[in-house]
């Protein structure tokens, strides 16, 4: 019957469309890395978060262990407060440190967690005490020029000594 074959074809079309969307979502986007795994929250304070954005990855030893969920400014200390969502299987010692690093020379920034040596782990909601801010290019250049000037000054002084 023509009606049945039309229904089959339409069903096939819808199926194909959904498969295509699923393909793009899984193979070509980050759906597969959305674990339905449990996660817990940590927070860290930075003097400068640089170009860090929400949903940036959190890596330990280069492996993605979580995501940045929120970034805000503490009105009292004027530090950047970054909220991290870490997958439950990954527990970090209390003295772990968080750094804001750049993926490649010009890539996106992410949070790198380095495990410390303590026995006890960070509890959910805890604050990562040791942090290192992002490297801001202007500060780096300023520092470089300052060092260069200091060297030159020392050289001049050295040259001046009789």
């Amino acid at each position: 019957m023509a009606k049945r074959s039309i229904e089959t074809l339409v069903g096939l079309f819808v199926l194909l469309g959904l498969v295509a969307l699923l393909f793009v979502a899984l193979k070509a986007a980050n759906l597969s890395s959305f674990g339905s795994q449990d996660s817990y929250t940590l927070s860290a304070r930075f003097d400068n978060i640089g170009g860090l954005k929400a949903r940036a990855p959190v890596r330990a030893a280069g492996v993605v262990v979580g995501r940045v969920t929120a970034i805000s400014l503490d009105p009292k200390t004027f530090q950047g407060v970054v909220t991290l969502s870490i997958e439950r299987p990954f527990q970090f010692p209390k003295d772990s440190s968080a750094k804001i690093l750049t993926a490649g020379l010009l890539g996106d920034q992410y949070v790198g967690l380095e495990a410390g040596g303590e026995v006890d782990n960070l509890a959910p909601g805890a604050v990562v005490k040791q942090t290192q801010s992002a490297v801001v290019l202007e500060n780096l250049i300023g520092q470089f020029l300052f060092n260069k000037a200091a060297d030159a000054g020392a050289g001049v002084d050295a040259g001046k000594k009789p």
């Binding site: 079309f13 819808v14 469309g17 959904l18 295509a20 969307l21 793009v24």
Partner: peptide, 15 residues
């Protein structure tokens, strides 16, 4: 109903 499905197919085939 058709257009989102067609768009998904277009993008997938394009990739």
């Amino acid at each position: 109903v058709s257009l989102p499905l067609l768009t998904g197919l277009f993008s997938a085939v394009g990739i």
